[in-house]
Structure formats: structure tokens, C-alpha cells
Amino acid sequence: MFRKIVWGIACAGLLTSPALAEDDPGKNDYKWFFFHKEGVAEEVFIADYTFCGEYGARVQPPRGHNVYTPGLIQSGVSGFLGGIQRSSQRRQMFRAVMRKCMSMKGYTRFGLTEEEMDTLWDGGWDEAQGRVAARAAEPVTTERRADP
């Protein structure tokens, strides 16, 4: 019986997974993107990005109600899953603040593929800032303009 339930959930997961969904090139633009303002100086971009990032870093998703869970293991599992959910919410709130802030500073946003995003951000902010700033300043080669 337990095996059937596990298989059922796995199949449902597969059927609803993005891999089987209709291929929409813009579906991941909410997480893979770059900001653009043609001709922006590198130091201006870095200052703007850092300013917005500092505000974004302070976001905290609202805390839900604590659900009573008897037993140490159950509470541990419930806390762990809650933590994963909160961390995902926090990432989304961070992106929302960054997008709002950069758009209010006059930047537009364009979607990227996962590979392009990985290449652009290779090495983290310290190594990538020059590359990201250059990408922001150069003329856009993609048509996939995303919402601010």
C-alpha cells in the first residue's frame, strides 16, 4: 500500500513537472535575467546594484503560525520543511525588491537561459560584477524583454 502511494505521488509529480509542460521560453524569466541600461558606467551599475541588493537582503517572509507537532522527529521534519519554504519565499522577495529597485532606477530586464545565467554569474558577485555591468551597458541582443 505504502509503495503504491509513493509511486502515485512520483507519477503525479512527473505529470505536473515543468519538463513535460509546454515549452515557454519566458517561463523562467522570473529567476534568470539581466538588467540593462545602455551605456551605463560600470561604477554606476555596481553602485545601483549594491544599493538595491542591500535593501533586498533585508527581506523576511512573514512567519506563519506554528503548528503543534507531537514528538521530536515530527517537529524536526516540520521545521526543516518550513525552513525550505521560507528560504524559497525569501529568494522570491529578494528578486522582487531587486527588480522594483532597478526598474525605478531606469533599468529594463531581459530573460536569459540557465546556461547564459550560469556563464554570466560564474564565480559569484566578486568575480562577475564587471561582466554583469558590461552586459547591462552593451546593446541588447535578445528580444525577450521581461516585465520590470
Binding site: G56, V59, Q60, P61, M93, A96, V97, K100
Partner: peptide, 10 residues
């Protein structure tokens, strides 16, 4: 500062 961790606007 955004001391209450909310979204930000003006």
C-alpha cells in the same frame, strides 16, 4: 532601513 523585512517601495 527596511527593519521589518518587508517589500520596499516609495
Amino acid at each position: 532601513g527596511n527593519h521589518y523585512g518587508r517589500l520596499v517601495n516609495r
